[in-house]
Nucleic acid binder design. Structure first.
Lengths: 222, 222
DNA sequence: TAGATTGTTAATCGATTAACAATC
DNA sequence: TAGATTGTTAATCGATTAACAATC
């Protein structure tokens, strides 16, 4: 029995990028598109684009390229954007509020069903149109509503405890925005967003450029 | 002349993780720590931990490990957390407000000096204690204050235009939260945060698990 | 000393990129 | 047809992991 190799993480992350471009192209009424053309617009290697698209199951025609409508449909299908999954968000602070309100996750296959918090001042009210429930109710509600995604936007110190409650509620995938690695059962899927790591990398690279400038004496005179 | 190899991106992203753990360890009064111990607590390979730490320039002692204080100091030094860099944030919406207020970036070497927006209703007011300025003033202010970091939290459609203004202002590093790839001069450092890509990956993996469950018939009965 | 841990070199692994025949 | 593009296999590249002598 052949074990189907999982689709590479980088590919999964690029698919929404293609989707966005394709929607624009679709809006212009263009029917076909080639990998070199996509690669050119997105600054990606054409071969890489082709491999990524093939992961979704589409096939193209030499000389012509791929059918735009088909590509859009396949990506949506492949990423499960058609059957929306429900999520619970824990931590109704600034970041939590931003995720609740700003992002149009519904288009991307996820709907945040409710928010949770321990702060009595927040519980019971509604935030960006979503009810804020007391945290201790999460496990029971997650089981009852069969919610499988948990979003953590609490301070680092509280993250592990929240994650434990999510697991107790049968949640299978956790999107963790707290700067804290979680200890979880093997089968749980975790994505650590880790903004500090991202910032660290950006700032270290910048440090290098600035020192280079200082050394060669080319200041901010552009 | 030997060209010093740049530190791998994944290493840079892990350094804040070590730092956080080390601060905890430091708080407990522990003086030394070994790579196997760090790896154990962070679920990372000990050799990887050693390589990462070596990138910052520290050396350890066999059998004993590394001096905690020295590690903390070296990481902070290496990531440039000691001399704080100033940043401008553009897009005073939900996410922008969250980044302005929630995150304690100051501890991590970055301070957001001001926010910008095109919305007259937002301009002139202050948000989370920071002034919101009209966008068109960004280039001149960035040059005058020698701000080198730009944070983009505007809708995708406006992102490129904002990026162009940043470049005009001499900004060297862009932290982009808009789901839009930017066309920039070669020397500009960009980090795309791309939450949709992250979500896509999470949800596709979950899809796989759910289908597996459906196939083998083990429902949510834990 | 014995044994854990470092520093370093080699092997593995996975993703990106290059090469090229097949095809429309 | 000629030539661009696909599909696929091979080469490259970089990061992770393994192996092992040096050392405290």
């Amino acid at each position: 029995m052949e074990t189907t190799r999982p689709v590479p993480e980088p590919t999964l992350r690029r698919l929404p990028l293609y989707h966005r471009l394709l929607k624009v192209v679709q809006g212009k009424g263009q029917e076909h598109i080639s990998c070199p053309s996509i690669g050119d617009q997105l600054k990606l290697d054409p071969t890489q684009v082709r491999k990524d698209l093939q992961a979704t199951g589409v096939t193209g025609r030499p000389k012509v390229g791929f059918v735009v409508d088909e590509l859009v449909e396949n990506i949506e299908q492949f990423l499960g954007w058609n059957n929306t999954k429900e999520a619970f968000l824990v931590g109704a602070g600034n970041l939590g509020a931003a995720l609740l309100g700003y992002m149009k996750f519904e288009q991307y296959g996820m709907s945040i069903a409710a928010a949770f918090d321990v702060d009595p001042a927040k519980v019971g009210r509604s935030l960006r149109g979503k009810q804020v429930m007391p945290l201790h109710k999460l496990p029971a509600m997650a089981r009852r509503l069969r919610v499988h995604i948990g979003i953590i936007t609490v301070p680092a110190a509280a993250a592990q405890q929240v994650a434990d409650l999510m697991v107790e509620g049968g949640i299978l995938a956790i999107w963790n925005f707290a700067p804290q690695r979680l200890r979880l059962p093997e089968h749980i899927i975790v994505h650590n967003e880790d903004l500090y790591g991202s910032l660290a990398s950006l700032s270290q690279r910048l440090e290098g450029v600035l020192q280079e400038q200082a050394r060669t004496g080319q200041g901010s005179a552009a």
